[in-house]
């Protein structure tokens, strides 16, 4: 009798715990941006941490969310990054790896999720789910040398809808945040000062080389 009672209590408490937790694997579709591609050959490196990223809430006072974002992040960057470059080489090995070389490619982009935060309607007393994400963007040259390193933030929100689950609303807020990140990157990627300097030096060195070649040809009798 005691055993049955404790088993029932255990089942009841696990049911209550399950009711207070949310499991979400973020899913969404991301359009490719309409933009002028940079005259570069690009590639991307996604670290294992990014591909398998999940957020588990550990605050005792909050609802226990477990949010898997890795696949959605990869899908997002795979839609966005190729549109920013005139040529795209796809996925690259780790540019920080030993003896890294990727001949023919100019730039390797490495995005790293450095912060993920959210707020729920019951916390803000509004009917809105909000998400903030922060990325560390790094650009490497084809010999593994770090070219640029900067942070970029994005924000997404969605209202809690009638008959819409919390999971669906949170998923939508994360998708909106990733789309916001895409908007920011589309406009500002070509304005990264280190990238602009590097491209300027590269262009002038190409011009110098062709001028030298022209000079040599002119001197030839």
């Amino acid at each position: 009798m005691k055993k049955q009672l404790s088993r029932s209590l255990l089942m009841l408490s696990s049911l209550i715990l399950a009711a207070c937790s949310s499991q979400l694997t973020v899913k969404g579709q991301f359009p490719s941006p309409l933009t002028t591609a940079m005259p570069l050959h690009g590639a991307a490196y996604y670290s294992p941490e990014l591909i398998s990223h999940s957020y588990a809430e550990d605050d005792e006072d909050r609802v226990k969310w477990n949010i898997q974002t890795g696949a959605a992040q990869q899908e997002f960057f795979d839609s966005l990054l190729p549109a920013l470059f005139q040529q795209w080489a796809g996925h690259s090995p780790d540019p920080e790896g030993e003896a890294f070389k990727l001949p023919g490619v100019d730039i390797i982009v490495k995005p790293t999720l450095s912060d993920f935060q959210y707020s729920l309607p019951r916390e803000t007393r509004s009917k809105i789910f909000e998400v903030w994400i922060k990325y560390n963007m790094q650009l490497y040259q084809n010999d593994g040398q770090l070219l640029a390193d900067w942070f970029i933030t994005a924000y997404g929100k969605t209202p809690s809808g009638f008959m819409q689950s919390d999971e669906a609303a949170m998923n939508e807020a994360i998708i909106v945040a990733l789309r916001d990140l895409g908007a920011n990157l589309t406009v500002n990627f070509s304005r990264v000062p280190e990238l602009q300097d590097w491209m300027g030096k590269r262009d002038s060195s190409v011009q110098q080389q062709s001028a030298d070649r022209g000079g040599v040809q002119n001197e030839t009798p």
Binding site: P31, P33, L34, R179, D180, G182, A183, N184, T186, V187
Partner: peptide, 12 residues
């Protein structure tokens, strides 16, 4: 909004 992404996103 999808066909003109990202020019009609809230930020832009």
């Amino acid at each position: 909004v999808d066909e003109l992404y990202p020019w009609f996103e809230p930020r832009m």
